[in-house]
Design a protein around this nucleic acid. Structure first.
Length: 406
DNA sequence: TCTGGGGTCCTTGTGCGA
DNA sequence: TCTGTCGCACAAGGACCC
């Protein structure tokens, strides 16, 4: 977190163009110019990314694959290769690091950069955006769009304006870079439809339409009390600030991960307890592997299940000491799973760990015994060496304590 | 044969101790 | 002693993001 006394910030939002698809096309150049879809090949899949040629047919991310195939039967559907996308993402980040250490990754394919302190060395925001686009294209054969603005939110909207577009008429190249100068934020955001604001999804949009708000300018003008009554104080105040082009959130380069989880939708619903247990074993193993890779343990473990009617439920337990092994995760999750209503059919199961911390275990007396030879007195000596002579003594030497005191 | 998987953040309800 | 309330922590659900 940096605090700059006075002076405008210069924030870049870098967004790779159709990232997964573009990475695949580097490996399979024969598919260039064709509608290509990554993900969504499974029976219950959805689209993860679509080439601009595929977008001409109304295919977009999160679209159920069954619908995507209906809209464009001749599209090429590829399974995703997330490990590879992760590698390429790291290469992109190495390039970004040449210009500033203040990088906040949002996803594999996009990041915020605070280049306020890099202007002397590398030039203004537009210049830096041009340089890193050139670097990424030359070194990785990938294109990206960049928004430049005094804050994160406007920079993100600007990068959308910089992107290529696709409609029935064809694919239209984008500007590549869009700069919103300080003082022009309101002018830039006011004409946009309100659903372009970060945090306005289908539910909030419905509420906003209900009180007559369709453009960002409407949001900036409406009585704040009416807005609060509709959305709640916190969200109302937040959206109003955005509508005024105000966003003070810093670029956070060192955000700690808060949860690690795995979930899976099955090709066919599960009704059998053994089947469910088997899947939980797999999920627990996957979560445990990633916890340990990150040198973390979880104090809270959450079981997620989605029934065939798409109703979702979660149940969690919190324990005193972080767990990081598949066996420990499973021991916590299995009792939760016993309460599932299997007769409804389970289409998805997930396990996630939160309240993360170092995976240490409270030192047990047995641990100390195990460190020493068979002679218990060795263990005594070991404890006293580590924790002091009075740290261990015969129970008979302990004074009785008044009930209720430590 | 419609609805993934990785997350973050916020709201709401509830239980508990002061 | 009983009751209300306040603040807090936690669990569960949901909205939203890519």
């Amino acid at each position: 977190v940096t605090v700059r006394a006075g002076g405008e910030r210069t924030i870049l939002h870098v967004d790779m163009d159709a990232f997964y698809v573009s990475v695949e096309l580097r490996r399979r150049p024969e598919l260039r110019g064709r509608p290509v879809v990554v993900g969504g090949s499974g029976r219950r899949g959805v689209v993860a990314a679509a080439s601009y040629e595929a977008r001409r047919f109304g295919i977009h991310s999160a679209l159920p694959s069954a619908i995507a195939k209906r809209r464009c039967p001749h599209a090429v559907f590829l399974d995703g290769d997330h490990a590879h996308y992760g590698d390429v993402s790291r290469q992109v980040h190495e390039i970004l690091h040449r210009y500033t250490p203040l990088i906040e990754p949002l996803a594999l394919d996009e990041a915020f950069l605070d280049v306020s302190g890099a202007r002397v060395l590398h030039g203004d925001g537009r210049t830096i955006a041009g340089k890193l686009r050139d670097d990424i294209l030359r070194e990785l054969s990938l294109t990206c769009s960049v928004g430049v603005a005094p804050n994160k939110f406007v920079a993100k909207l600007a990068s959308v304006e910089a992107k290529p577009t696709a409609d029935r008429d064809g694919v239209h190249p984008g500007l590549g870079i869009v700069v919103v100068d300080p003082g022009r934020e309101r002018e830039f955001v006011h004409p946009l439809p309100v659903e372009r604001l970060w945090g306005v999804g289908p539910v909030t949009l419905e509420k906003l339409h209900g009180i007559g708000i369709r453009r960002v300018a409407d949001l900036a003008e409406i009585d704040i009390l009416a807005l609060r009554a509709s959305l709640g104080d916190r969200q109302a105040d937040h959206l109003r600030a955005l509508a005024d082009g105000i966003d003070d959130r810093p670029v956070e380069s060192d955000r700690a991960v808060k949860s690690i989880g795995h979930e899976e939708t099955f090709s066919h619903d599960l009704f059998d307890a053994d089947d469910i247990h088997r899947e939980l074993v797999r999920l627990a193993d996957a979560v445990a592997t990633r916890l340990r890779r990150n040198a973390l343990g979880a104090r809270t473990v959450t079981l997620k299940a989605r029934y065939s009617d798409f109703a979702t439920m979660t149940r969690s337990v919190t324990v005193d000491e972080p767990v990081a092994s598949a066996a420990d995760l499973l021991a916590l999750v299995d009792p939760l799973a016993a309460h599932l209503d299997r007769s409804r059919g389970v289409r998805l199961l997930g396990i996630s760990g939160s309240k993360l911390g170092p995976p240490y275990r409270q030192l047990q007396f047995d641990d100390l015994l195990a460190e020493t030879a068979d002679d218990p007195s060795d263990a005594l000596d070991s404890v006293r060496r580590r924790f002091g002579h009075d740290s261990i003594k015969p129970a008979s030497l302990l004074r009785r304590r008044v009930e209720g005191t430590p």
